[in-house]
Every structure is written in structure tokens, then in C-alpha cells.
Design a protein around this nucleic acid. Structure first.
Lengths: 148, 148
DNA sequence: CCATTTTCGTCAGATCCTCTGACCATCGTC
DNA sequence: GACGATGGTCAGAGGATCTGACGAAAATGG
């Protein structure tokens, strides 16, 4: 704590800026595209829904929140028409959260924005440095992502 | 959105894991050291207090929250004895938020934990890759940190 | 097969975080 | 000095997140 800007910020803190930048950029462009009722928390959950749907418990684990929180956010996303809950054919207790039609449109916009941002960063850092950055972050994820 | 784990996560998302890991590690070790009344939001503000004290407005800008939010968090930190507010000698409107005695102890623990984590990451990635990671992140900060 | 334990999800309630809007005091400038 | 900009606060509302308790279905193990 208490290092304002100069004398070597911690790697963890340095990771904050790009992540935050991407998130607010996403939120802004989604709002501009007409999806102005999405929040970051909802997005973090929605971003982890797999193609065939994902269980609430898994969403919660991946997003590092409790299942209650995840359930709350899915409620909102469902009410807004972005996702849908269907019974899990393999488990009568569980339900799969799936991306609904309206959600697909959001995914498309989000993917485009992500690609844009990535292109800008690559242009600024250079191909090589960007590749190294990605490699290091993917490696680092192995020990910092408690889920995978 | 909707990329679970495999096919190339965005750089922004990859940045999330280390940052989150450091934050929860910090929170956990601070709690273990007896400072169990600190929250992440408070820490994010406190981490940006400079040696001579920092204005509320600057703290808010650096942490990317409104000054009301920053003020709220500083209230809590002050009530808990971690920081103190003193008049800014150069501006009668402003007050400087300074780290108080109890806060210094927290800073010491936090620095130690940060160093530990950094050492672990360096051991895993290797000196060279870590240096490259840091360089890329610092460079990236130039275009993703709206404050500096 | 039944009993026990685990897992999936929900409900209820509380706390914390963050924002918008309105407002006042002071600074800087012309 | 008048006026716009800046530093901060007060008040209120909406989200996000957690802990705890619970019901229903699955998995496990005799």
C-alpha cells in the first residue's frame, strides 16, 4: 500500500489497469449499442456461460462469488431477457443457464469490442511483446486462478 | 463474453486473475495479522495515499471512484484509526489524508505480502519472463490508466 | 435398498459499495 | 471584486456481496 505511482508498482496492481480499462470500455460500448441495462457484475457472470449452458454453481465458482450472488445476477439477466434457465437433463436438481437470443447480440458486440481493444494494445506494444505478455499471463493464471 | 476457458481469453480477462489473487491474498494475510476490519475497497483507497498525504479528490481519481465514495471509505478508515485528515496548508478548502500510526503497521504487512507474492510469481515464471511481463504492463498502463 | 452425506439451488436478511444530485466554501482569474 | 472552477460534504437510492438456513435430488456405502 501507499505507493502512488513511481517506485515500482506491484505486478498485481499493474494488472488492474488493463482489466479495468477493458471492462469500462465494454460497458460503454454496450450501452452505446443500446444495451444500457447491463452492469459489470452481470457481465462477469454472463461472460462465463458456455455454449451449451452452464450451471449456476460453476458460474459462481469461476466468477469467484457465492452461488447466492450468482443466482441474484442471473435473475436480473433472465428478467432482462439476456439468459434463460433450462432444466439440466442429467441432474434434476440443477438447471443450465443459457445465453438467450438477446444475449447473443450482446455477445457479438462484446467480442467485437474485445477484438478492437486487443488490436489497439497490440499496436501499442508490438506483436512480439503482446505475445509475450499473453504467454506470461496465461502461465500466471495457472497459479492465480483457483478455479481451473 | 462467453468464452469459458479454452479458446484464447482476452488479455483484459487474463489480467483479472493475478490482480484478484493478490487482493484476496492481501486481505487474508492482513486479517491473519489482526487487521480483520479492512475491506478491499478501503485498501484500494488507502494504497494510494502518498508519503505526505493525498487529497481526497486525487485518491478518488486514482482509484476511479467518485469523491463521495472515496470520502465514505476514508471516513471508515479514519474511524478505524488507519488514516487521519489534516488541513492542507496550501489550500483552505482541501484536506490531506495521511496514513496514521496504525495504518503504518498495515502498510508494512502489505508490503511484505506484496513482495512475497511477487517472489512466488517470479519463481514460477522465471526472472526474464517476469521482467518482460512487468515492462509490458507498465507500458500498457500508459494507455489504460486514465489518471496518469 | 435404505441411510447418510454431498451437491444444487433458493429464500431471507444484513452489510458494504457506489452512484446521482444538491449544496457550500474557497481558489484563481480577469 | 464577480465568476467559473475546484475541494469536500450531506442525503438518498440502487447494486453487489456475504452468512445462515433450508428443501430437493444425487451419490455413496453398507
Amino acid at each position: 500500500m501507499s505507493d502512488t505511482g513511481d517506485p515500482r508498482q506491484s505486478l498485481g496492481l499493474l494488472c488492474f489497469y488493463p482489466h479495468r480499462a477493458l471492462e469500462s470500455r465494454l460497458l460503454g460500448e454496450l450501452a452505446a449499442a443500446g444495451f444500457d441495462d447491463i452492469t459489470m457484475a452481470q457481465g462477469r457472470i454472463a461472460a462465463r456461460i458456455g455454449p451449451a449452458g452452464t450451471r449456476l454453481t460453476d458460474l459462481a465458482a469461476q466468477a469467484l462469488v457465492t452461488k447466492q450472488t450468482a443466482g441474484h445476477l442471473v435473475d436480473q439477466l433472465e428478467r432482462a431477457g439476456y439468459v434463460r434457465r433450462v432444466p439440466d437433463p442429467t441432474d434434476a436438481r440443477a438447471r443450465l443457464v443459457q445465453v438467450a437470443e438477446r444475449g447473443q447480440e450482446v455477445v457479438a458486440v462484446a467480442r467485437r469490442v474485445e477484438a478492437e481493444v486487443e488490436a489497439e494494445w497490440t499496436a501499442y506494444l508490438g506483436e512480439e511483446a503482446t505475445a509475450a505478455l499473453r504467454a506470461a499471463l496465461e502461465r500466471l493464471r495457472e497459479i492465480t486462478d483457483p478455479y481451473r
